[in-house]
């Protein structure tokens, strides 16, 4: 390690032969875009990528702290015969959800924002499937997993409880099945 190299590293009046080649028309570029500069950029890129994940973990820590899963009355069983569906909001007013009583008698609920681009999904009684009309995304009604079309992730599952003929939403699961 020499100290004087620090200041004079990339200057034109360096005594290095490489810098003072005669007729080197691209001298400025050679000094600017070289192997060393490339590695420095690479280091910068690597650090930028690594540190760009930090905001996500900060948000995630806030997400861990916030607690979902309050109990909400959604509907009465006799309002929802087999093959029907209804919409509600859970866990907050801005989270649209769909409650389905399938033709097979199953009772399931999901947040209805399609995991592709957030269009609401609908229950199709004829084929017993959840359909997102925007880009023809299909979800399995029994577990919320995408079965066709652009969506890649499953719909968030809303856990249900039935008590005295009243359906309650009790919690939400993002990854399931």
């Amino acid at each position: 390690m020499t100290n004087e190299c620090k200041k004079g590293r990339n200057i034109k009046d360096s005594t290095s032969d490489m810098v003072n080649l005669t007729k080197n028309v691209d001298q400025t570029d050679d000094l600017k875009y070289n192997r060393r500069a490339f590695l420095k950029t690479a280091v910068g890129a690597s650090m930028a990528l690594g540190l760009s994940t930090v905001p996500f973990s900060v948000r995630a820590m806030m997400g861990i702290a916030e607690d979902e899963g309050e109990r909400l009355e959604v509907a009465r069983m006799d309002e929802l015969p087999e093959g029907n569906s209804m919409t509600f909001n859970y866990p907050t007013e801005s989270d649209a959800a769909i409650l389905v009583h399938t033709v097979n008698g199953e009772l399931v609920a999901y947040n209805s924002a399609c995991t592709h681009l957030m269009c609401p999904v609908f229950y199709e009684k004829e084929s017993d499937i959840l359909l997102c009309p925007c880009h023809k995304g299909y979800f399995d009604v029994s577990n919320g997993q995408p079965v066709a079309g652009p969506p890649q992730r499953e719909l968030p599952l809303i856990e249900l409880e039935v008590e005295n003929g009243i359906i309650y939403a009790t919690g939400r699961k993002y990854r399931h099945g």
Binding site: V43, S46, M47, L49, G50, L51, S52, T53, V54, F56, S57, R59, A60, M61, G63, I64, R153, P156, Y174, R175
Partner: peptide
């Protein structure tokens, strides 16, 4: 993060930060 697997988010981003420091 999109799958709300927050524990995993912290793990992966921790690795990311460690790798960034290794690079440095």
């Amino acid at each position: 993060y999109l799958g709300r697997e927050f524990e995993q988010v912290v793990v992966y981003s921790g690795i990311g930060v460690v790798l960034a420091f290794i690079a440095l």
